[in-house]
Design a protein around this nucleic acid. Structure first.
Lengths: 249, 249
DNA sequence: GCCGATTTGTCCGTATGTATC
DNA sequence: CGATACATACGGACAAATCGG
């Protein structure tokens, strides 16, 4: 099957909502109506709806129905719950992107670096510093650590393009989970050397640890963003009467 | 039933993982083993596991199993996907919290305010400014807008305690979904008047729109945090071969 | 307040597909 | 190749919440 059924239904409903096919604030057709329309089981419709709940498009309520709470929103540099490479984010937000590698070395994790990155002491790592430009201006300074044993053949040339594309397409690695933390930090001399912060003296910092399909931590990245371009979106639910979360792209 | 089955299993597995009952980096018992242990159906075990995936505790892989990728992590001021009041966050992170109301008024949304907050023009709103202190120091400055028709009887005294407790316990409202955006902004004179930023000149800003169970937008809040205490965590998955997301607290 | 219809929430069992080993 | 394990999908049953008469 080229595409799973629940994903197709999810996408169909999503576009309909975005196109305004269902009035905002009103109920969508019931699950029974939808499974009749799509010719599928109830579980499949429910998976699709759960994806829309997670995206903040709709809200469900037992005994009542599914309310449309869609509101068009400014595209964000980062979306909750989704791993995207810099190039992919730029494409989604329709911006011109380029990358410059300013440092590329092989090193070994000592005790301090291990504590900071989550790798075990003694792990061999590529340490890469990169500057990402958006529409010509330097906006993001990245410290990347990649586990060398998971990323053989990595070169500065690859790092200047898309490392993720190399890992996924050339090495056949599959990237699965990433634990991310967002903080705000004072600018360092290194930040200022590469990024024109203007009147700001802080950066938005996203620190992430990424795991491959073997469950191995293969990347630790500290991504330091110009505050003016950083924007992260999230949809949250109240745990009390918490509904499903499923489906989605 | 006092508690749903899938939630109970989710919690059981979660505590086991936290307690180190399953070796990190190894596979958990298979779904078949778990459904035998818990005496439930496959779907129920899968919902519990999906919750652990969402929390970044485990990773699943078709044909292989469920890997434990748990790593203890610094408690965060904010967690992805979960709505928490200030008081609840403080309790979770074991910090002493207090709140001071510095402004409390009833106003009407004009065109500009409507665009900024997402309410419709003409909506009657409570506008509240509050300072949250953590361990005695002022750390967060909040601009709250509440739809007056949804929050009758709101007073400065209530706002000095927990507004959410009033809404949920006294008014019987149920809070469901919140759309949040994180940005970094320059400090304003108002920020500086209430919060000692020290050497910083920016704040971490979380803007949220919250909906009640009727699907009505009843709150718009701009929460401006001292950068040193702001910390937001997220678990992301790569969309390509994306697994389920379900369950969880 | 009660009752019944509707709607979502939970759970079960089964079958089949696909990836891994 | 077969055995194992997760992924998808179907169908049915009952519970719980909502709403209208």
């Amino acid at each position: 099957m080229p595409q799973q059924k629940f994903l197709a239904i999810y996408k169909t409903l999503k576009s309909r909502i975005e196109a305004g096919a269902y009035p905002v604030g009103q109920l969508l057709p019931s699950e029974n109506a939808l499974l009749a329309e799509f010719g599928c089981s109830r579980n499949t419709v429910r998976r699709a709806i759960a994806g829309l709940v997670r995206d903040g498009y709709v809200q469900t309520r037992q005994g009542r129905g599914v309310s449309n709470i869609f509101q068009p929103i400014e595209p964000s540099s980062y979306k909750m719950g989704t791993i995207e490479s810099f190039a992919e984010t730029a494409r989604r937000t329709h911006q011109q992107a380029s990358t410059r590698v300013v440092r590329f070395e092989l090193c070994m994790a000592d005790a301090a670096l291990a504590r900071r990155t989550g790798f075990e002491p003694g792990a061999e790592l590529y340490y890469i510093q990169r500057v990402h430009c958006i529409n010509g201006a330097a906006q993001i300074f990245n410290h990347n650590f990649f586990r060398a044993s998971c990323t053989p053949g990595l070169t500065p040339e690859i790092a200047a393009g898309s490392i993720y594309r190399y890992l996924e397409n050339t090495l056949g690695m599959s990237i699965v989970t990433s634990k991310r933390t967002i903080t705000v930090e004072k600018a360092t001399a290194l930040d200022r050397a590469w990024i024109d912060l203007g009147e700001y003296d802080c950066l938005a910092v996203m620190t992430s640890q990424t795991y491959n399909s073997e469950g191995i931590l293969f990347e630790h990245t500290e991504s330091r963003h110009h505050p003016a371009i950083f924007r992260f979106q999230d949809n949250a639910v109240r745990p009390a009467r918490r509904p499903d979360q499923d489906g989605g792209a």
